[in-house]
Design a binder for these strands. Structure first.
Lengths: 164, 164
DNA sequence: GCTAGATTGTTGACTACTCAAGTATAGCTG
DNA sequence: CAGCTATACTTGAGTAGTCAACAATCTAGC
């Protein structure tokens, strides 16, 4: 039944599909490159890096596991295991919450801060390189704005600065 | 050392970072939604779906493993394992190559074709829903075009139609 | 103040990959 | 045609996450 007359349905929604497929591919390719670099140069995965970044920017440099899960779009158990690694490496430690015995905060350590700053140098430069080689400033803004409209539970996800 | 005067480097490259972080989040959120749907409704992962789609569109409905790997941005071993599952389910089968004994083709079966068409109905509608609710036609084109400029080894990745 | 239900977090079993090493075949070069 | 290198694929071991079941704690309603 191949190569027949093509039925309608699949052919009218090209623009959405095109965008989705391009997004899938771009993510796979960029992630592969950036992650490999981060792992080789600093022994951090992209999610390790994001955890450190979020903690560094948080009040008191600490965040509940639930909030980290929401920010990184991971499940609670994913966060538990991610933090296991970072704790073992000494970049993060635990702290109890006075007002709620259920929560354990993740707190970034001095070593974690140092690591984040080291990693940021190369990581930010790579990202910049990959994007600026392909887009003008205006295009970057457009791309960021459009992507930002897609679902994502973390509303403040766009400030990527690294506090000292 | 926290909350000091902020050092320059990290703050001048916001547009690239913003785009990258938005891409990461959008990918995580969309993947989560679409994949969950596809798995629940049809028992296929996104990569299963993409394999069937690429095979359906290929000449003779077959592709070398190497070529699938390149199209899906997976490693050779990832493809072996992905195809294992699809073979076990009967959606794909193997075929030898006459001119090169090293290659085994993956060939989509009739059952695979049927499955692909079933899955396409809901999957395409979901994608469409997610995107069209947020973007105008022109914006979709822009988004697709911009994302398409990012690295991705498969140049012909943008035609997503499902052959009958 | 007790109980029902929601929230926070961890764990065990699984999945979907990756990487490195190995096998088999192809094809070129002298 | 002998030997080398490159290509196609598979396999074992490891990693990073998921989901479902669980324990502990909090909170609101009666």
């Amino acid at each position: 039944m191949s190569r027949q007359v093509l039925r309608g349905q699949a052919f009218r929604e090209r623009p959405s599909l095109n965008a989705w497929v391009s997004l899938l591919r771009a993510h796979a390719a960029l992630t592969r490159t950036l992650s490999a670099e981060l792992v080789h140069a600093h022994g951090l995965t992209i999610n390790d890096y994001e955890v450190l970044l979020h903690l560094a920017r948080a009040d008191d440099h600490r965040l509940r596991r639930v909030d980290l899960a929401e920010r990184l779009l991971l499940t609670a158990s994913g966060i538990t295991r991610l933090l296991d690694g970072l704790e073992r490496a000494g970049y993060v430690c635990k702290a109890q919450c006075d007002s709620d015995a259920r929560v354990t905060y993740a707190v970034i350590t001095d070593a974690g801060f140092t690591k984040l700053h080291e990693a940021s140098d190369t990581h930010l430069a790579s990202i910049r390189g990959l994007f600026e080689e392909r887009f003008s400033g205006a295009e970057l803004d457009t791309l960021g704005e459009l992507l930002g409209r897609l679902p994502s539970t973390a509303p403040d996800a766009t400030d990527c600065s690294v506090p000292d």
